[in-house]
Design a protein around this nucleic acid. Structure first.
Length: 506
DNA sequence: ATAGGGTTAG
């Protein structure tokens, strides 16, 4: 009896196996007993009240989930894995990936291994954290435990590869899984297209799109693009200045009977604004309202930012009033955008006033609010106000970020406070803060402009030990510095090094 | 029924 049960399980596992042995070998070297991913059902396992109610009530907070998780870990016998998965899913949806990893680790401490779903959640988590290598390890684990990865697994890995700019690998993985008989679905295509677009490969995405549309590559089996797919592509094309293509795609989409929503409109409006096609942008804005699509806070932020960049800050301010009249609640991005607009126009007092009134109106000021205003004060050479704001933001328990430091380093350098810039740099280094290339570039530029080429060279040489790679920008700062200092040979050496590193593309 | 895709500021 028992033997027959096992035999049946083994047979069904074999049938459900998607890979040929050699294909499995490609993905993982060790495969043990194949097993169905369906978890065993048991009525004797305890259900905690929250674990059960989660599915009905989606609004459970992450902290509730974490508390519940702690309780469930203590219970004997253990609640079913599906309850754990529910909590893992809640934390993952909130993008609290560090917490998620902690949860998985704590489960491991009590010998509780995640099942098929849990492993997929973990895999996705690593991909989101730009640790696609770990994502692949988890897939190895999935295979080892006899589960079969599915299209969701692969979609997550494709996203992870894209996020690390490994576009070739992402396309390679896609081709491989198609060869293996998996069917990419609309989300897979959306992920890939978005990944391509976000890494400046919108033209590749467009080519892929044309091929699929024409059915040229045999990829058209399940190709029914969605609104999200099109929005990604339109946005990507617009960001690379291919607004005409973006408009075409917008029409193509609607021609397929897919109506644009607030996001699709936002992407195209933003693209038009960036190209200075203000009239067309306005037309679209009116069109969407006529069609009953409510502009949201993002739409308004896009319009306001474009107005600010055009030097039309007062119109942007009018836009803020319009959105409030329409019952659309501005967020911190709205205010930061407008504050930045005032700064760009040199209206630092208006910027400050808005910054102050923000708090008064109950809108929380974030790190970016301070960054924008500090930058404004730097640009109008009011270093004393810069210092004050910097200490004020720390008093308000806001942690300066890398943008803050770039603004400060650049600001001190450009306001004849080079020593202060160097001091800040050293303080940060000593505190263990990991400076990035942009931070270093700011100080490098300051050192070069002050004629301190020796110090600049010293800092440049330290890039590797700081775990940084010089960027194009780094090289041009150094080349410029050496040229101005009439050290043409050194400038030339720098140029050669840059070319050798393949950085000479700009 | 527990996992995957899109728009905005420094």
């Amino acid at each position: 009896m028992v033997a027959r049960t096992y035999a049946r399980q083994a047979a069904s596992a074999t049938r459900s196996r998607i890979f040929t042995p050699s294909e499995r070998g490609e993905l993982s070297t060790i495969i043990i007993h194949p097993r169905n991913p369906t978890p065993p059902k048991s009525s004797t396992q305890p259900q905690t009240p929250l674990g059960k109610s989660l599915k009905a009530d989606q609004k459970i907070t992450v902290s509730d989930a974490l508390t519940e998780f702690d309780k469930m870990l203590q219970l004997q016998p253990r609640p079913p894995m599906s309850s754990f998965n529910t909590l893992l899913g809640t934390v993952a949806k909130a993008k609290r990936y560090q917490d998620l990893i902690l949860m998985i680790n704590r489960m491991a401490e009590v010998n509780l291994l995640p099942d098929y779903i849990g492993m997929n959640i973990l895999l996705n988590c690593y991909c989101e954290l730009k640790r696609v290598g770990l994502g692949f390890s988890v897939m190895g684990g999935i295979l080892k435990r006899g589960y079969n990865p599915n299209i969701v697994t692969f979609t997550a890995l494709i996203k992870g590869l894209c996020m690390e700019d490994k576009i070739g690998d992402a396309l390679g993985l896609l081709k491989k899984i198609i060869r293996m008989g998996f069917h990419p679905n609309v989300k897979t295509w959306g992920t890939l297209v978005n990944g391509l677009c976000r890494t400046g490969n919108a033209e590749v995405a467009l080519r892929l799109h044309e091929e699929m549309k024409n059915g040229n590559v045999g990829l058209d089996l399940r190709f029914n693009p969605s609104l999200i797919y099109y929005s990604s592509l339109i946005d990507g094309l617009c960001k690379e200045g291919l607004v005409e293509k973006g408009k075409e795609l917008f029409l193509e989409m609607e021609g397929r009977g897919i109506s644009a929503d607030v996001v699709a409109y936002g992407a195209l409006i933003h693209g038009l604004c960036r190209m200075g096609e203000w009239e067309q942008a306005k037309e679209l804005f009116i069109q969407m309202i006529d069609r009953g699509i409510r502009p949201n806070v993002v739409t308004f932020n896009i319009l306001m930012d474009s107005l600010c960049k055009e030097g039309k800050t007062d119109e942007a301010s009018g836009m803020l009033e319009l959105m409030i009249r329409r019952g659309e609640k501005p967020d911190s991005i709205t205010f930061n955008t407008l504050i930045d607009g005032y700064c760009l126009e040199g209206r630092i007092d208006d910027a400050k006033e808005l910054f102050v009134s923000m708090a008064a109106k109950g809108h929380e000021r974030d790190v970016a609010s301070y960054n924008v205003l500090i930058n404004g004060y730097c640009k109008c050479r009011k270093v004393e106000d810069v210092r004050e704001l910097y200490s004020q933001m720390k008093d308000h328990d806001l942690t300066p970020d890398s943008a803050t430091y770039s603004i400060l380093l650049d600001g001190f350098c450009k306001n004849d406070c080079l020593v202060e810039a160097i001091e800040l740099f050293e303080t940060l280094e000593k505190s263990g803060y990991k400076l990035n290339s942009l931070n270093c570039n700011c100080l490098l530029d300051g050192l070069c402009k002050a004629g301190k080429l020796n110090l600049a060279s010293e800092l440049f040489e330290r890039f590797p030990e700081m775990g940084l790679a010089p960027t194009n920008f780094t090289y041009s700062i150094m080349i410029n510095g050496f040229c101005k200092d009439r050290q043409l040979e050194k400038a030339n050496n720098m140029f050669v090094e840059m070319e050798n590193k393949g950085c000479a593309l700009t």
